[in-house]
Simulated assay, not measured.
Amino acid sequence: MTDCGCEKAKAELEEYLHNELRKDDAADIQEHLATCTDCSAEHLIGRTMTEVMQRACKETAPEVLRDQVLLKLRALQASH
């Protein structure tokens, strides 16, 4: 039995999600995802997690919280 592309798709999914593959390899993965429900579902999970993480990394703490943390750090530094 030959691999239908699942092994390659799963091995390179992370790179595919981050656009780190060569054009030819990305096209192979994209073609495979269009026809394989298992790999397509895994891709959706990976893409969703990637998007959530990217949004979370862009968030900033409220200014009040930042000020409280900085004050606490300065107090700790002064006591040592």
Rank of each mutant, 00 (worst) to 15 (best):
C36Y: 06
L71E: 08
T60I: 06
R55G: 12
L76H: 09
D3M: 01
D38N: 12
D24W: 00
H43D: 04
H80G: 14
G46C: 12
I29T: 10
L13C: 05
R74K: 12
T48D: 15
R66A: 13
H80I: 02
L17T: 08
T35N: 13
V69N: 06
A61I: 05
R47C: 08
V52F: 15
D28F: 05
C6A: 08
R74C: 02
R74Y: 02
C57M: 15
R22K: 09
A34R: 12
L73E: 06
D28Q: 13
E42M: 14
E12H: 02
L70H: 04
T37L: 06
L21D: 02
G46V: 04
D28E: 14
R47E: 13
C4P: 02
Q30H: 10
R66M: 03
Q68V: 02
T48S: 15
G5V: 01
H32Q: 09
G5C: 05
R22G: 11
E14V: 08
Q77G: 01
K23S: 12
E42R: 14
E42H: 13
K8M: 11
E7Q: 03
R22S: 14
N19A: 10
E15A: 13
M53G: 03
M53N: 08
R66C: 07
L21V: 08
R47P: 00
D3P: 01
K72N: 08
E59N: 08
L21M: 03
K72D: 08
Q54C: 11
R74S: 01
T60V: 11
H32I: 03
G46F: 10
D38Y: 11
H18I: 01
T60W: 01
C36F: 03
M49H: 13
K72C: 11
H32E: 09
A27N: 07
K72V: 02
V64D: 15
T35Y: 09
K23W: 04
K10N: 06
K58T: 12
L13M: 15
Q30I: 01
A27P: 00
L17Q: 06
R47Y: 06
A56M: 13
E31W: 05
A56I: 11
T50C: 10
R66E: 11
E51W: 12
L13Q: 06
L76Y: 09
E14F: 05
E15D: 11
I29K: 06
Y16M: 04
T48H: 14
H18K: 11
E51D: 15
D67Q: 08
E14K: 10
D67R: 09
N19L: 06
D25V: 10
C36H: 10
E59C: 14
Y16Q: 02
Q30T: 13
R66G: 07
L70P: 00
